[in-house]
Write a protein that binds this DNA or RNA. Structure first.
Lengths: 226, 226
DNA sequence: ACCTGATTCAGACGACTGTTTGAATCGTAC
DNA sequence: GTACGATTCAAACAGTCGTCTGAATCAGGT
């Protein structure tokens, strides 16, 4: 247990500091002293700072993306031949992040801020991590959105999903106290996931800007995941 | 002239590197060697790294915000008693960044990426800079949007403007080759400012999520600028 | 030619960076 | 209790960081 204890304490402290100060702005000494462990423990358990970032990322992103896909499976199975509603799809994409946050309380409160920041980190290894993990999720959700919005080309959907991820990640960084209604009384003025979903759903329904037949072919994840 | 020459070369090099690697990820030695000047020139002309960031920020944000307000003045003067269209307001907000970029070509190509990143920098001085410079712009645009969207409360508008800034900054960071149509042929698949404006205009028109009379009072810039 | 203030220069300051070492300590199986 | 692999420890590695110094170089006015 002592292994996992030290390892987890390092990961949690790193998650918090990466969320607050970014990757380059966080020192390993800051992490280990916040975690109450020896500096060399990072090298012993992870090897390098990059590998630590990878571990922080892996601990959370796996479950989130798994849940995203499960929810998408659920609503697709429950939907008629036209597929799920736009709002359902967006909620399947966004809410796993919020729910994970609620489940964690305390120690994981920084998670949502971390995942928001991750999307903007100017560090090569982070960009690679996101691309790799987002590939399947991006493909599935663009396909689902394409069914719900038959007037839009796939490249337009990918573009709008990019806009949406920007809005989501910025909201996560900025207002990490973002609240889900099921969490109890929504404090006045706190942006909720529902607000963002409603906002983005209306945005996705904007008419296509392209001539009707000019559907370009692009690799979905090429345009979306980065 | 030699003064301004060295000073400007440092600022331009810093702008580029801050845009690519972030503030904490950029060293002054990297900046000065990219600028082809002596390391101590930073200390001589700016004093500290924080002050350099301030100078980089100041060189661009002033003109952008000035132009934002000028355009808002223009469209408000030209509009009827109901005020300008939603799309006009959003374009007044977004396009100055794009046009500055077009005007600069070459050396300033990194500007849009820099301004996008600035909104996500986890550095205290940067957050302060944004808050200070955004105050008037935020107040004016929220007021204009409130006129164009009378069904929304000010706090809802501020919230949606926050979402929009997230979408904008993420797009600027991610796809700094974003193109304005007036720049010539739009390459297929490149997100344009027009796409983002249309996307966000539809989003702003989403019906209010609040009970009609529950308009909360908040300082606008408190909720928006950060 | 000389002075003066502005600017640039090489070099160094101490502090901090990620990484590594080898010995000390731990828990566990014999 | 003793041996052994896993883990933790203090200490140090070489390198980089932001900052600063004092001398050298420059420009322009007298």
């Amino acid at each position: 247990m002592s292994t996992n204890d030290t390892k987890d304490r390092i990961i949690s402290a790193a998650e918090k500091l990466f969320a607050e100060r970014g990757f380059a702005g966080t020192s390993l000494r800051g992490v280990t002293s916040a975690a109450g462990v020896n500096l060399a423990a990072v090298h012993y358990h992870f090897g390098t700072k990059d590998a630590l970032m990878q571990a922080v990322f892996d601990r959370r992103i796996g479950p989130v993306n798994k849940q995203r896909l499960e929810r998408l499976d659920q609503i697709e199975a429950a939907a008629g031949p036209d597929g799920p509603d736009l709002e359902e799809i967006l909620e399947a994409f966004m809410s796993p992040i919020m729910e994970l946050k609620r489940d964690l309380e305390g120690e994981g409160m920084m998670w949502s801020r971390f995942i928001g920041r991750v999307y903007t980190e100017p560090v090569e290894i982070v960009e690679t991590m996101i691309r790799d993990h987002f590939e399947e999720v991006g493909r599935r959700f663009v396909a689902a959105l394409a069914t719900a919005l038959p007037d839009l080309s796939e490249s337009e959907i990918a573009e709008r999903l990019l806009f949406s991820i920007g809005a989501l990640s910025h909201t996560l960084i900025d207002l990490h106290q973002i609240v889900t209604p099921s969490q109890g009384a929504v404090q006045a003025g706190a942006p909720t996931l529902q607000h963002l979903v409603a906002f983005l759903a209306a945005a996705f329904r904007a008419p296509s800007a392209q001539p009707a037949e000019a559907h370009r072919e692009t690799t979905v994840t090429e345009a979306v995941a980065s």
